[in-house]
Amino acid sequence: MRTLLQYLGLILVAILVGMPVWWAINTSLQPLESVYSSHFQIWPDHPQWSNYTDAVSRLPFLRFLFNSLIITTTAVFGTVLSTSMAGYVFARLRWTGRSWCFGILMGTLLIPSQVYLIPHFLMFERLGWLNTYKPLIVPGFLAMDVFYVFLFRQFFRSVPLAYTEAALVDGATHWTIYRRILLPMSKPVVITVIVMNAVFHWQDLMTPLIYLNDIEKFPLALGLRMYQTMDGDWVNHLMAASLLSLIPVTLLFFLTQRYLMRGLVLTEK
């Protein structure tokens, strides 16, 4: 009986939360003139599956998908590497100015990203990085997503020092300890960072909009804007293409979510 109630609650909330998703699916299957109609339909009477083929064939969809994959994998790799290294230093090494640096690190969490817009543009322009993927990728390698540094730090701190002391005595370097002992232990955090960062890069619109000029280089989030015009959107195509573009990240989340529960631990144990 209690299980039944629990399921009922879960399903009810799922309907509430999933309503917009359902709408997106519904819209993607309708002809333009029935979109937004006041007739409430659970499922369109004549689902127009051709919207999907049209949506994909009117744009170089596969090219966009490939670009998104390239950008996301590289940036996520860089983020995991740089933030875990920084997290290691903040968690397991003692050095002067550490608390100051940690204060700065947490302070950067509060800065609105619009501050960076012009300075970063000018810097990357000086470096000749416009119309390349570097402005999208390099900040990841420089541990710019400090929340992940924080996650790694918390996790590394929870590992007892005795665990690594023996290795140090045996002459192992910090790199070995980080690479061979701590990083393998922190698989949940690594996966958490991968998922969260991948979702971010997958749907990031502003950065590619600012830095990319050639359509051959567009990622999905930017490319799908080609369905928006001043005096009318191709709503059904836009929804069809958006839904297709979201499949990879949704799958990623579904497959890894049991790790997320262990990776997102903020307290020290």
Binding site: A86, R92, L93, H120, L142, M144, L161, T164, H174
Partner: peptide, 27 residues
Amino acid sequence: MSTAQTTSTGTFLKFLSPWLVGTSVLV
């Protein structure tokens, strides 16, 4: 509570340089 391991001042630079560069230049 865990405590940090002491280390030579130079070791941490290798690990922290990405963040140091990123924060000072980009933030």
